[in-house]
Each structure stands twice: as C-alpha cells, then as structure tokens.
Write a protein that binds this DNA or RNA. Structure first.
Length: 242
DNA sequence: GCCTCCTTTCCTGGTT
DNA sequence: GAACCAGGAAAGGAGG
C-alpha cells in the first residue's frame, strides 16, 4: 500500500473534481508509470480541470495526445470508475515507482499560472519525486519554488524578456548561454527591489552568482568582466526549449 | 527545534 | 584608484 499510484489516487477526490493542477499531477503520474517522454504529451491540450477532462471521449484523447491518447484514456476511465490506476505488470518487469507522502506534499505546493510560455526542462529531484529525471514542460507547469524566484532565474528572465528591462543584460552568445551585464548596479538594484533589500549591490549579487559555479548553474568565463555563462544545470534559457 | 537551501553580508587578496 | 573577480566564513530567512 505504499505505491506511488495508490497513495496518489486512492484517497484523492474523484477525477471529476480535480483541479487543473491535479490533472497535471495525473499526467505526470501516467508518464512516470509508462516511462513516457514528456515531449510526447502536448500539455497545452490538457489545460483543463477534472470535469473537462472527464468529458473527453476516446477520440478526444487521441486527438489531444496522439499515440499516448489511449493510455491516458484507459487511465482516466479506470479512475472514473473508482478503480486505482496502476500499470499492468508488463513483460519488462518494471518496478512500480514509489513516492513518500512528504514528497507528494512538496509537489502539491505547486500552483498554476496561465499556459502560455516556452517549454523548459524540469529536474525532478528529491523535492518533487524520488527519482532524479528531466522532463520537458510548459513554463506554466513548472513547479514554483516556495522560496520564490532564484537569482539565476531572475537573470534568465531579464534576458528572455529584454523589452521589460532594456539595456540591463545582453546575450553575448545566445546559443552558448553567454551573457553580459551592461548595467550591473541597476540589475542589483532590481534584484534588491524584488527581494525587498534596498542595500543590494552588484558586489553582493556577484557573490551569489559565483556560488552557482559549484552547482553548475553558471560557468566561469575567464578574463571577461561582467560576463557569465549558463551551466548545465540552468534550465529554460535555450531557444530550443521554447 | 533542527536541518537544508539559497542567498546575504563582510572580508581579504588578486586582476583589469 | 576604481571596478571587478574569486572564494572563505558566518549569518539570515524561509520551508520542511
């Protein structure tokens, strides 16, 4: 009785009463169980709550999710009938995934925004699901950190939305993720404003940036002042993620 | 209350 | 000399 699926779906409300978020949870669940690549599911077609989801017929699912549609349809049909959805034991003998309640709760802290936005890679780590994996999701589906936006995300968002904050930071090499601060103190002030810290300076901000080197969110760019580069653990800045 | 994470602050020393 | 870079150390704040 500790399986991920039974924990998730046995005590939750009927799918008819799911929120949008719970629909997303369910999609995640099906992806996990069936080892489906997230890119195979067009999430934008499932921007709906449980009531709307349950009103879809088989053909709607095929239209919305293509080859994965029948899996989703079977899943939701089982859940609507009050059953627990679990993957039938296949020839591969794959183990069912498990997740603890506390981790589940961490996921439930996520909230929804609108569905417009680029696709970004999301690392599922100990704060979400038990296994480290990477999935591609619409930005609006990305779990928000309860602590708020991280500095590197703040920087990334300025780069991705230059019209909002023109002339602060610019790409030096878009494909490589290299960028340069044009107005370092102005960026620091903006960051400070966001954090309600009027004493923020570029000196302090840059120290925080340097901590990202170790975590490979940023990479060093030797010999160039005010120049940084996104590292392998920075997500959502690549054009291909849109 | 303790722990972890993510900064924030201060600092020293080096480089441009 | 100013601005920036690098990184150690300690502390703060928030969530789990």
């Amino acid at each position: 009785m500790s399986s991920y699926t039974s924990r998730l779906w046995s005590h939750d409300s009927q799918p008819q009463f799911w929120s949008k978020y719970q629909v997303w949870e369910w999609l995640q669940q099906v992806m996990d169980i069936h080892q489906i690549d997230a890119s195979a599911i067009p999430f934008q077609n499932f921007d709906m709550d449980g009531h709307q989801l349950c009103s879809l017929n088989y053909h709607d699912f095929i239209r919305a999710a293509g080859s994965v549609g029948h899996i989703l349809y079977n899943s939701i049909t089982e859940l609507k009938s009050g059953g627990r959805y679990e993957r039938e034991s296949g020839s591969g003998g794959q183990k069912k995934k498990t997740i603890t309640t506390s981790k589940r709760k961490a996921v439930l802290n996520v909230f929804f925004q609108t569905l417009n936005g680029p696709l970004v890679e999301v690392i599922r780590s100990k704060n979400t699901f038990h296994n480290m994996s990477v999935v591609l999701l619409p930005l609006a589906f990305v779990p928000k950190d309860p602590r708020g936006t991280h500095l590197w995300e703040f920087i990334r968002d300025i780069l991705l939305n230059p019209e909002r904050n023109p002339g602060l930071i610019k790409w030096e090499d878009r494909t490589e993720g290299v960028f340069r601060f044009l107005k370092s103190e102005a960026v620091a002030q903006l960051w400070g404003k966001k954090k309600n810290n009027s004493s923020m300076t570029y000196e302090k901000l840059s120290r925080a940036m340097r901590y990202y080197y170790k975590r490979e969110i940023l990479e060093r760019v030797d010999g160039r002042r005010l120049v940084y580069k996104f590292g392998r653990n920075a997500r959502g800045w690549r054009e291909t993620e849109k």
